[in-house]
Design a protein around this nucleic acid. Sequence first.
DNA 1: TTTTATTAATTGAACGTTCAATAAAAAAAT
DNA 2: ATTTTTTTATTGAACGTTCAATTAATAAAA
Lengths: 209, 209
Amino acid sequence: MPKVGMEPIRRQQLIKATMAAIDEVGLADVTVARIARHAGVSAGIISHYFGGKDGLLEATMRQILTDLGDAVAANRQELRHDTPRARLEAIIEGNFDRSQVTDPVAKTWLAFWASSMHKPRLARLQQINDRRLYSNLCAQFRCLMPLDEARLASRTLAAVIDGLWLRGALTPEGLHADGARRVALATLDRLLSTSDRPLSTSDAVTTAS
Amino acid sequence: MPKVGMEPIRRQQLIKATMAAIDEVGLADVTVARIARHAGVSAGIISHYFGGKDGLLEATMRQILTDLGDAVAANRQELRHDTPRARLEAIIEGNFDRSQVTDPVAKTWLAFWASSMHKPRLARLQQINDRRLYSNLCAQFRCLMPLDEARLASRTLAAVIDGLWLRGALTPEGLHADGARRVALATLDRLLSTSDRPLSTSDAVTTAS
DNA sequence: TTTTATTAATTGAACGTTCAATAAAAAAAT
DNA sequence: ATTTTTTTATTGAACGTTCAATTAATAAAA
């Protein structure tokens, strides 16, 4: 079996196996033996290619976030009418495309999100991603409304997107991408259509928190 | 030391210690020894009162969800103007009151949410809670708009609330309750103010997903 | 034959649970 | 009012298991 140039193949194979294993038993019960079995290799190979279990987990999270970023970027380049609104819609589409919105990906994503609360290396990856989403949203909203409103709109849409993922990951039937996308797009529609009406009391925003 | 009637005291003490321990090192690295040390008791006592580690974790999640339900109910009974809108605002206030919106609670909540993906007993608790929130929201929205719109509005607001908790649990500065509440209330405002305007394309909802 | 890829066996640490012993408090008996 | 018995609360050490990492051996490719 040993052939030269196996490294990229094995890495990809093991990352995919990690997601499958997390989907199957959850991050808490994932062992290197189980991941290796999924990939059809021995456990020792994980230390060889990733330096250990933690290295593989980090690589898996990085892969998910990279795929997400790619999906957003891809959707954005397919735009014909390049308006701010179209760009916002593309961001939403990208976020519910996430390469493929499968159960393993959604569950792994949430598992890592929770895990990153106490693992600085994962937290850093997560934060970079969060900030990118927020900045992207804010840059577009700012073309259409004052800064304060744009910030509020960005926080709202970001919360909706993450909330839909969160709920989708837990629901027994899995994340229904079409339904989620519809909710997010409807939210965007409301955020844009109310930007020129007078603010009611609960809209008042004095400073960013 | 042994006094009679310690059970309710110890149970409360251990549940609180569990949240503190999860806040400190995360659910993955929580050991019975660490929880016991936080509570100032020995490790064996956990099995005695909760039947084991899992029993304590389940009791802790149940406590958080109970506190949340109580907070919502309390906010609702303090209402003077009992309009559907006021009730929706009370639900939001309750969800960002959650007895006390502390860091340990937010982190424990998210940790359990992730964990419940693969623990049926926890998933059941979570689902009961989810459905209660959704039903409460939907019942109020239905007073103000057609059923289809009410369902969409409920899904949106539920996603915003959970998304804000999710993001708050991860952010290094912790969950800022005031800022989160403001976002949620602004979302509610938009959901209500657009209910009588014509729907744009992305608002169209044919069937529930 | 040297290098690369991989395995299988092993190690050592960490963990949850169990359980016998103990100590205080309460109840009963003297 | 003492003493004895019983109940309740708690400890801490021992046990068995599980797991990640390491190591030495193996086998194919270059």
